[in-house]
Nucleic acid binder design. Sequence first.
DNA 1: TTCATGCTTCGATATTAAACGAACTATGAG
DNA 2: CTCATAGTTCGTTTAATATCGAAGCATGAA
Lengths: 229, 229
Amino acid sequence: MKEGPDITLIGSLIGDPARANMLSALISGKALTASELANEAGITLQTTSAHLKKLELGGLIRQRKQGRHRYFNLADEDVATLLETMMGLAAKKGHIRTRTGPKAPEMRKARVCYNHLAGEFGVQMYDSLVGRGFLQEDQDEIAITDSGRDFIKGLGIDLDPLQKAKRPLCKSCLDWSARRSHLAGSLGTALLNHIYEKGWAKRLEDVRIVEFSRRGEAAFHDQFPLLAD
Amino acid sequence: MKEGPDITLIGSLIGDPARANMLSALISGKALTASELANEAGITLQTTSAHLKKLELGGLIRQRKQGRHRYFNLADEDVATLLETMMGLAAKKGHIRTRTGPKAPEMRKARVCYNHLAGEFGVQMYDSLVGRGFLQEDQDEIAITDSGRDFIKGLGIDLDPLQKAKRPLCKSCLDWSARRSHLAGSLGTALLNHIYEKGWAKRLEDVRIVEFSRRGEAAFHDQFPLLAD
DNA sequence: TTCATGCTTCGATATTAAACGAACTATGAG
DNA sequence: CTCATAGTTCGTTTAATATCGAAGCATGAA
């Protein structure tokens, strides 16, 4: 009778507040333990365990054992993309979590989306790379150009290991705050790491916010300038 | 404490099987009455009414009174896009509705996504338009070129009223079956209408499938050829 | 006015599943 | 070995909500 993919399971997994909180926490890309997720969601460890099992069974998260800890991550970038898409729609429809803290503007400015940079800074970096011809958009695929390779190499990033990985080097991800694309994929991850390593910014504890120092911000704008149009 | 958009409401709305069925039915873009949706979901009219109220309150659908009927539609294209994104992930994770009918291959070939063409034919049309320089991708925005204007005009489509509308003329939408972009927006709608008007294809009753005639298929390939690469 | 159709509202029932306490397993530290 | 920490499993309680029957309202037809 019915045909096609079934979206009810994914919907109901995201539909529970406790699980939505856990998933939101995991968009930061940071691997979290069950206890941390329990704390994040405000529920006991037993309940958390049950939720995590369901999320894993539904293919939304992955777990990694390490000693007596279990670290949880989103299953892949597609899950992060879906969550950001939903956040975009939710924001548009006015479904905002009631207690909106003072962090919201910082979130809009620069935050982590799974493992790459999002927010205004993420969009700027993406625009800069495309505008200067370092990335090229072809359909919905993005590819790095020869001059882009040189640029990345100039930053001290080695592309070879990134290209060998299974995950795509370049991938676009839609922002809920800016409604624009930013760069995902292994290159997106590498560039975020580059920002950390240069000391331009640091990730706030247990939050998705990426906090740039004043010097870091200047260096960022210098490295990823927007072309006047 | 918590910041950002809340995705639980949307998730739980989609998470109920009855509502998911209704939403899936509405992706076809066809306005459906409460009774039709009740039939689609396999529940009584009272229950349907309750579901529709929730979906409307959540901003996922819109209703239009007409005589003693009420016609329901998805609220906007973003909702359709979200649903297709979820279907893409669900398909990837193997969450397929159990009773997969014989319609699946036809769905993959050509179907309606809200108000434009999706599936292989939709992707081909998009690729053809981009490949011949009629559409141009700039970031995640798509714009029509001057030669594109001429081409569309040559099809007998008047662009003026489309451009005056609030909704974007060109917009890309990701396919769950092909994992590629196809054309949404008012131009996408106009092109789908063009296909109907030319008699190349007709929409199967109450289903998303677009069935091309043999002659229509040939005409389509003639009008939207893929460039050899 | 009377009747039929389409849909909503109300109230009751039934099912689901989220939550936690308590007990159990596993890994590591001293 | 003993203790502590991290997490799972089990059983029970509790809350939420999907569902439908029955009644009510609105629109259009006759």
